[in-house]
């Protein structure tokens, strides 16, 4: 098994996905099976092969520094689950 429950827990935390303890074993099994399958990638000799992050890249695209109006505050906040004082409201974030 390439991934154990502790790793699943760690990855879930990185991804900010609440995973009930009861699901950890199933996740480990499913992810393990997929990882075992994709381990075939190790069979290929890719020494000196550069990576391709995008097949048909387009370098140098940029736009002019011209501001334009976006959304109003009420449009911006229209879909927010909670808002107050013109801001998106979230449970308290402790700084520091």
């Amino acid at each position: 098994m390439p991934i154990d429950e502790a790793q699943v827990r760690h990855v879930a935390r990185l991804a900010r996905l609440a995973v009930p303890d009861s699901d950890l074993a199933r996740f480990a099994a499913e992810l393990g099976a997929i990882l075992e399958h994709v381990a075939r990638l190790q069979e290929l000799d890719v020494r000196d092969v550069p990576p391709t992050a995008a097949a048909l890249g387009r370098p140098g695209v940029a736009r002019d520094d011209e501001p334009s109006a976006g959304l109003t505050a009420s449009e911006a906040l229209a879909g927010a689950p909670a808002s107050a004082a013109g801001m998106f409201q979230v449970p308290r974030v402790v700084e520091g």
Binding site: A82, A84, A85, G86, M87, F88, Q89, V90, P91, R92, V93
Partner: peptide
């Protein structure tokens, strides 16, 4: 300006 000690995001 946020109610009940909530955090506001601008």
């Amino acid at each position: 300006g946020m109610p009940g000690g909530a955090t506001g995001v601008d």
